[in-house]
Amino acid sequence: MSGLELFGIFFSALLINNILLIRFLALCSFFGVSTGIENSIGMSSAVIFVMTISSAISWGLYNFVLVPFQLEFLRTASFILVIAALVQLEEIYLKKMIPNLYRSMGIYLPLITTNCAILAVAFLAIDYRYSFIASMAYSVGVSAGYSLAIILFAYIRERMALAPIPKWFQGYPIAFVTAALMSLAFLGFTGMFGL
């Protein structure tokens, strides 16, 4: 697989098929955590961290355990198992080895266990029949796209907190409208480089 193809996978995951704004996955955290820039940066760093590692491990599990035993139908159960165990393991590891990173990630690390984007990336990398390197590029791209979208959205929401908004639009209504407009803007990337 050439470097250009890998870049294509990464770029497609980052912008053209952005996990939040085009595929509409992981929307709960998109609206829940984007109230402040600091929160969204914490969440996205945790997502990048967990998504990359969990997709690597689930790729290995699928190709070296489930396929040889012809147990492909078990992938949902086993991937959830992998992600839950992995997040726990990472939490234990970080608490001991890198306490500062653990404290800055705080509540977001355990929250990720239920983030559907993590599971989706593990599934999609297999559906697309990616090689290991390609699935790594894909998961890094998806998590970078997640960070891009949620941090941009947090910036807009911080500005909106100061804007004169009619009372019936305050809070989630205006956030939904904004997310829809951002999603429309991201549609503009469709067809870029023929991806």
């Binding site: 599990l61 355990v65 035993f69 012809q70 147990l71 078990l74 086993s78 198992l81």
Partner: peptide, 12 residues
């Protein structure tokens, strides 16, 4: 298949 599924998932 059922047996392998149970064993693999249980082992995991």
């Amino acid at each position: 298949t059922l047996l392998t599924a149970v064993i693999v998932l249980g082992l995991m």
